[in-house]
């Protein structure tokens, strides 16, 4: 059960994990997530799915190592077994022919936006891809995206590849297109999703974000993943995880995401797994 087929660090601190789980692999749809526990004492953490192979019966996750729980995942080797791998959870991304869809991925979200872009491409959409990272060496899957994108933009903080800066360059990118995209989907850290939503609100383009709050059961039972969307309380696990980015209360979302920062550090020190902490902090939020 839940056998690890592969676990590789694809760029620094970013890991790819392929898990054998035939039932989930045959069911999962773009935009959905799973919950895993690395071992019996482990915390339950939700992770977006980046790819799957229903014939082989495997799913693939790309995750960033930020603390103890992801640290334990990062220590897994082929042949190991995960204590828990449950899903598919959450609602799938609505796939239709919208015309042109701009897909934005950053951090682990480069992985999780991939199946979304692929399905949208298959549905007949023009795909414009924006990938964002701090530096060129942290970008991954660029070639994979190039084959399915009609146009691809890379943004790096240090300008080592593509445009220099961060998601604040989004308005320029949209303005450079012959016509604005019909829809935008953003997967990645809170900063990326919140900032992108802020920019596109002014442009009046529908922007969907895939939220990644703290969760325990992932089936609507605990309510820790509650988020305010259009002034209403929603549970990201069963009502989401995808929401209209213009309607999300980002300040509240960010505060809730950070709720256990201190404890995470305590546990990390205590359990002291091998890997190092991601220092920049942005993506932890």
């Amino acid at each position: 059960m839940n056998k690890v087929i592969e676990r590789t660090m694809i760029v620094p601190n970013m890991h790819l994990l392929e898990i054998e789980t035939p039932e989930i692999a045959s069911k999962i749809k773009p935009g959905q997530f799973i919950i895993v526990r690395a071992n019996d004492e482990g915390e339950r953490i939700p992770l977006s799915v980046a790819d799957w192979n229903s014939e082989k019966g495997t799913i693939t996750i790309v995750f960033m190592e930020v603390g103890a729980s992801t640290g334990a995942l990062a220590c897994l080797q082929a042949g190991d077994e995960l204590a828990t791998c449950v899903g598919p959870l959450g609602n799938e991304t609505q796939i239709a022919n919208y015309g042109t869809v701009l897909c934005i991925g950053g951090c682990y979200g480069i992985g999780s936006i991939y199946p979304v872009a692929r399905a949208l491409k298959e549905a007949g959409n023009q795909i414009i891809t924006v990938l964002e990272a701090r530096s060129s060496y942290l970008l991954y899957w660029v070639k994979k995206f190039a084959t399915l994108s009609n146009k691809i933009f890379n943004i790096t903080r240090d300008g080592s590849l593509g445009m220099k800066g961060h998601i604040n360059r989004l308005t320029e990118i949209i303005n450079s297109l012959p016509k604005p995209p019909d829809r935008i989907i953003v997967n990645g850290c809170t900063y990326l999703m919140a900032h992108a939503s802020e920019l596109t609100r002014e442009l009046g383009i529908t922007t969907l974000v895939n939220l990644n709050p703290i969760m325990i059961d992932g089936t609507g039972m605990c309510g820790v993943c509650r988020v305010t969307v259009a002034d209403q309380r929603k549970f990201a696990c069963v009502d989401g995880p995808e929401f209209n980015g213009h309607e999300v209360d980002w300040k509240e979302f960010l505060a809730r995401r950070k709720a256990y920062m201190n404890e995470e550090t305590l546990f990390f020190r205590k359990s002291a797994p091998k890997p190092a902490v991601h220092k920049e902090g942005k993506c932890q939020a």
Binding site: E41, E43, R44, A68, A72, Y260, E263, L266, F267
Partner: peptide
Amino acid sequence: FPNSATPIK
């Protein structure tokens, strides 16, 4: 906690 992984305040 911290002997289990799930934090509590």
